[in-house]
């Protein structure tokens, strides 16, 4: 794997060019250009906020901030995998004609989406200042969380992009799984609600399993690290009481370890397949 990484490093200018191309082309002929990548999550978050404030009140002050802080990393996860799943197949012409390290294709998609994500995070901090929310002391965890998520996403991107060359069904499977995981991950609701319900049903141990999922642990960490504990007005809206629980560093460490393993496994899998891409007639 190290020789593959060294070769990839030699082609770093290609990676940069591909990322630049993706950023340029994506919004090339649209008037609002880059702002579309902000408008999309903001409109989603505004819609969900209206539902969870007025239709099914969740009772958390500043709910939109707690939603946005989880929704942005989710967007990064989802968009990267959707873009990456097509990345190798859409460069088929090129693969059959020129040598270059094939992994630049999915990797450039993940990096382009990460740049969108980081810019959105900047906007998120501006939004916090505007609504007057305090900046919590654990904000320095942000780069750590981004790196962990990057490793997880890249590992998965390698796997889906390689598989999609051989099985065209993969992109549909990925999009179905993403739909399911949007609801399984604590994005629109709080992880503590899952904890409280599992406790009440006598399956408290299952919550450990829930936290073992690296995606859950990462999203929970974003929320706990970047925002103060939310206050729930007592007995207000939800049929059961729940309260904020602090960031559990043990599960974050496990998520980091799992993400590294996923990255290595994904990259190895991609490398084992990448020279047969061009032969898949």
């Amino acid at each position: 794997m190290f020789s593959e990484l060294a070769e990839l490093f030699k082609y770093r200018d290609l990676l940069i060019q591909l990322v630049a191309r993706d950023l340029k082309v994506r919004y090339k002929n649209s008037v609002l250009g880059f702002f579309w990548s902000l408008i999309n999550p903001l409109v989603q978050v505004a819609t969900i906020t209206i539902v969870f404030k007025y239709v099914m009140p969740i009772g958390i002050p500043n709910y939109s901030a707690y939603l946005l802080v989880a929704y942005l990393p989710w967007m990064f996860f989802q968009m990267s995998l959707l873009d990456a799943s097509q990345s190798v197949l859409s460069h088929y012409d090129l693969l059959k004609k020129v040598y270059f390290p094939r992994e630049v294709l999915p990797l450039s998609m993940v990096i382009a989406n990460m740049i969108h994500f980081l810019l959105a995070i900047v906007v998120f901090f501006v939004y916090l200042l505007v609504i007057g929310a305090p900046i919590v002391s654990t904000w320095w965890l942000l780069p750590v969380l981004v790196i962990i998520e990057f490793l997880l996403v890249t590992g998965l991107a390698f796997i889906v992009s390689a598989l999609n060359v051989f099985y065209a069904d993969i992109k549909y499977i990925v999009s179905v799984l993403l739909n399911i995981f949007f609801y399984l991950t604590p994005i629109i609701y709080m992880s503590e609600m899952v904890y409280t319900r599992l406790q009440a049903m006598g399956y408290g141990a299952l919550y450990t399993l829930y936290q073992l999922s690296p995606l859950n642990a990462i999203v929970m960490a974003f929320r706990e690290a970047l925002l103060p504990p939310y206050g729930v007005p007592p007995g207000k809206t939800m049929p059961f009481a729940f309260h904020d629980m602090p960031l559990d560093y043990r599960f974050l460490a496990i998520a980091a370890a799992v993400s590294i393993i996923v990255f290595i496994a994904g990259y190895s899998f991609f490398n084992s397949r990448k020279w047969s891409f061009a032969e898949q007639l």
Binding site: D13, L14, L18, R21, K24, V25, K97, V98
Partner: peptide
């Protein structure tokens, strides 16, 4: 021209295609 992207300008494609062929941007 296998690596050309239709939406990019000639100059942008020169840099992209050069990188595909392994030439440093510099």
């Amino acid at each position: 021209g296998a690596g050309f992207h239709p939406e990019l300008t000639g100059i942008e494609n020169i840099y992209l295609n050069g990188a595909i062929l392994g030439i440093k941007t510099r």
